[in-house]
Design a protein around this nucleic acid. Structure first.
Length: 213
DNA sequence: CCTATGATGATCT
DNA sequence: GATCATCATAGGT
């Protein structure tokens, strides 16, 4: 007997906590993207915590800029950034306000709207790869910087929102170093995922880029 | 399965 | 000019 997912929106208080509490608690929650063609729903299976101004791995580490301004605002809002010249990544801002902490949404399993996600992810050979990785997740859900700053606690009518879903029991949560984060930010096991879930992305250690000639 | 590499542009120094 | 919270592809095992 399994309990059905909770369709209530996560309250803003959920995000107004330290990011290391919020991040593992996001696993199993339901992210909804209300597109022009219909809704896409995703069950979160992998996230990473970024602890703002005290975290060398965080975009907020060197202070507020035009790009990261949303991170310094109130919790429960989307921070979307563009990277590597091609990709978008989606974060949710956590509290306390001003700490500029956030959770990178790294992977999930598409429930509703699989056909819509497939159209946006033509290179995916299996449905479990539709949102396996942060840029794939953003692509599958048609998330770009137009959604930067969206309040995700406003309910499923909003273009991007999150429902309580089915939280994951602590004994199913795994943790380890963050993907692609090097230097002093690499020591913290601030990546969280659901054990044995097929939609979780493979771990990649930080690799310095080779110099172009 | 695995590793290596090019793509591509905003952002920051 | 270098870096970047990445991905798709090519080719080897």
């Amino acid at each position: 007997m399994t309990e059905s997912p909770d369709r209530r929106p996560l309250p803003r208080d959920f995000f107004d906590r330290p990011v290391l509490e919020v991040a593992p608690d996001l696993l199993g929650r339901t992210l909804i993207r209300d597109t022009d063609d219909g809704p896409i729903e995703l069950r979160l299976t992998e996230v990473e915590a970024y602890a703002g101004a005290i975290d060398p791995g965080s975009h907020a580490f060197r202070g507020r800029t035009d790009r990261n301004a949303v991170m310094f605002g109130p919790p429960g809002h989307a921070y979307v950034y563009f990277t590597y010249g091609m990709w978008h990544c989606l974060n949710l801002v956590c509290g306390p306000e001003g700490m500029a902490s956030g959770v990178l949404l790294r992977a999930g399993e598409i429930g509703v709207g699989v056909e819509l996600a497939r159209k946006r992810r033509l290179s995916a050979r299996h449905d479990r790869e539709l949102a396996k990785g942060p840029a794939r997740l953003a692509t599958a859900l048609d998330v770009d910087r137009a959604l930067n700053g969206t309040d995700v606690c406003a309910g499923p009518e909003a273009p991007l929102s999150i429902l309580a879903g089915t939280p994951v029991p602590p004994d199913q949560v795994r943790s380890g170093p963050r993907t692609g984060v090097g230097g002093d930010g690499a020591v913290h096991p601030w990546r969280f995922w659901i054990g044995d879930d097929p939609s979780v992305s493979p771990y990649r250690a930080h690799a310095p880029r080779k110099r172009r000639t």
